[in-house]
Write a protein that binds this DNA or RNA. Structure first.
Lengths: 106, 106
DNA sequence: ACATTATATTAAAATTATATAATTTAATAT
DNA sequence: ATATTAAATTATATAATTTTAATATAATGT
């Protein structure tokens, strides 16, 4: 095992954390996840409304797709509506830590 | 206070967390911070050596500048050497959480 | 079948982040 | 003074992400 592969290994070990950090590094994606920590389930429309007019329907749908694709949220379709919910406990914990550190009460 | 400014306010409230997330979303910057959580102080040269050849001296110096500019690390100059250390407790806590969630032991 | 509403997709343009390469500053020693 | 080493800076190129705009799909009701 060479030095180089050691360092690659170090970086590979960080890959899951880096991936999550990148996903959370966007105001709307982070906001969606924050809301889903407190709300259990929200329809796509509610999520769009929550972020309009800062983010368009198309944009928000794209953010939701990213979160789906990465396995961070579940999507449940009911008729015309799609309901989103958090799919992973680690996101709950990470968002809680961020809240503690960067969203002081009062 | 309009709806729009409410939403801006929501996003502004997230700004500090977002800023930290973006800074941590890079393999070498995250790695540097991880090492400084465990090491207290490291010289620029040690940090460069730790990440070569994946990151050049110039790159690593740029990452350190970013961390300095953002106030995440302290730089102490001693002769030819510059010693870096963590400047903020929140980084320690955040890195610890990331470690717990994404770096399972063994 | 058609209209309506909710949601999703796609492609191009714009923006931002990162890498590369060359150069520079600063401290020390000869 | 000049050579050497550590570290930082700058400009440019490249790559990744995000925004925008237009369009498409899918479910429901008339």
């Amino acid at each position: 095992m060479t030095q180089r592969s050691d360092r690659s290994a170090m970086h590979e070990k960080m890959a899951p954390a880096l991936n999550i950090l990148r996903i959370l590094s966007h105001p709307v994606r982070l906001s969606i996840l924050c809301h889903l920590v407190e709300q259990a389930e929200m329809s796509a429309g509610e999520i769009v409304a929550l972020h309009a007019p800062l983010a368009s329907q198309s944009q928000t749908s794209q953010y939701l797709k990213r979160l789906r694709d990465e396995g961070l949220v579940n999507a449940r379709k009911d008729g015309l509506y799609v309901y989103y919910s958090l799919a992973r406990q680690d996101i709950r914990e990470l968002v809680a830590t961020l809240h503690d550190l960067y969203c002081p009460e009062a």
